[in-house]
Design a protein around this nucleic acid. Structure first.
Lengths: 110, 110
DNA sequence: TAGATCCATCGTAATATTGCAATATTAAAT
DNA sequence: ATTTAATATTGCAATATTACGATGGATCTA
């Protein structure tokens, strides 16, 4: 096997899993943080920031894009990538809600 | 290859990636939500809640535990698993901080 | 003590991910 | 039109993940 049984879970569960999976690699976390740092999105030098070869970085960017975490527009010779705020909002809201529920938890057995 | 180059990234980046990776599978998201729902932590019937065989669920639980997202104690015949609030706090704080920075962003090119 | 129940582990097969070299593509610059 | 620069794609090897059947150990119940 090795194939995830996505069809047995709810759409929301799959959505969160997709976002989380995209950030389940330190290189992609680093890319996100770099995009956050540069603020302006003219960023063709992500490769220089990472200890990875250009094709590898390109692949990670693709996965972040597929997951909806970043948006990218072709801008002449280079490419403009930036964080998609909606995805971050989803994650923030999700963990915020869980946290709230945990605080209201009556029992804390472990 | 296939092995992640964790040693080239910061500890914090790896920590977030580890947590995110653990939630990068809908079954594990579902487990988290179930643990949240039952509130009390005597929860030996996660298997019945999921469309997966018992060994598979056990494996997912192990990964959640390794990542620090859940805690578990053997309690007689069944096992008591519950969410580790600290991990959720980390995720909440992380995405909250990113969100704040995004809101203060001057440029929004994409 | 003898089942019954619950959970973890082992072994294994199928598939996915990670990483890079080589190559292709694209658009600006000369 | 050619070169140059930046990013994408392809192909491949190494490794990781996902899933489950079979098995085993621990504990509860009768």
């Amino acid at each position: 096997m090795g194939a995830t049984k996505t069809d047995h879970f709810t759409g929301k569960q799959n959505a969160i899993a997709t976002l989380a999976k995209a950030l389940g690699h330190p290189a992609r976390v680093a890319i996100l943080e770099y995009l956050l740092k540069v603020d302006t999105c003219i960023c063709g030098d992500i490769v220089n920031e990472l200890p990875l070869a250009q094709p590898t970085v390109s692949q990670h960017l693709k996965e972040l894009k597929n997951a909806g975490l970043i948006k990218g527009e072709i801008e002449g010779n280079s490419v403009c990538y930036c964080i998609d705020e909606k995805a971050i909002q989803k994650l923030k809201a999700y963990f915020g809600a869980i946290s709230t529920k945990l605080e209201n938890r009556k029992t804390d057995c472990c």
